Computed example of a mutant assay.
Amino acid sequence: MGDRNGCSTPGGGGSALSVMAGAVIGAAGLAWWLLSEAERRRQQPRQPRSLRLSTLRTPVPAEVGTGTSSEPHERDLHDRVHELNQAIDDVRRQLESMNTQA
């Protein structure tokens, strides 16, 4: 009669233990996630403040002539982007040639 209720089956206690272990692991995971989110939120206000402080410490170059000092920086950035695009194209061509050879 005990077999009908599932109480005396060998796997009955094991499934309850599995459920309990899953609940404990889930609770631990949830606690870890909540703590990491709280730590992230606690650190978040410090980040913009430290960025503001670093911009205050960094001297801003003065404007020279009619152009601003950011123009050379923009040209340098444009050159780097162009070089990266060329490198990406080279890699793409190499991959395409590997695919045609295979």
Rank of each mutant, 00 (worst) to 15 (best):
G2I: 07
G2E: 04
N5T: 12
N5H: 07
T9A: 08
P10V: 03
G11P: 11
G13Y: 02
G13L: 04
G14C: 07
S15E: 02
A16F: 11
L17Y: 02
L17M: 05
L17W: 01
S18P: 07
S18W: 08
S18I: 03
A21I: 05
A21H: 08
G22C: 02
A23I: 07
V24H: 06
A27S: 12
A27T: 12
A27D: 11
G29Y: 02
G29P: 03
L30E: 03
W32I: 10
W32Y: 10
W33H: 13
W33A: 14
W33T: 15
L34P: 02
L34I: 06
L35T: 14
L35H: 14
S36R: 15
S36D: 08
E37V: 12
A38P: 15
A38N: 15
A38L: 14
E39L: 07
R42M: 02
R42T: 06
R42E: 03
Q43V: 02
Q44G: 02
Q47I: 13
P48H: 01
L51S: 07
R52M: 04
R52P: 01
R52I: 01
S54Q: 11
S54C: 01
T55K: 15
L56T: 01
R57A: 05
R57K: 10
T58E: 04
T58H: 09
T58P: 00
P59F: 00
V60Y: 00
V60Q: 02
P61A: 00
A62H: 08
E63Y: 08
E63T: 14
E63S: 06
G65H: 05
G65R: 04
T66W: 00
G67K: 03
G67F: 04
G67V: 08
T68P: 09
S69R: 08
S70Q: 10
R75Y: 06
L77W: 11
H78K: 15
H78N: 09
D79F: 09
D79C: 04
D79H: 12
R80P: 01
H82W: 12
H82R: 14
E83M: 05
E83Q: 11
L84K: 14
A87R: 13
I88F: 06
D89L: 11
V91L: 07
R92W: 06
R93A: 11
R93T: 13
Q94V: 07
L95M: 10
L95P: 05
L95G: 03
E96C: 12
S97H: 11
S97Q: 13
M98S: 12
N99G: 04
Q101C: 04
A102M: 13
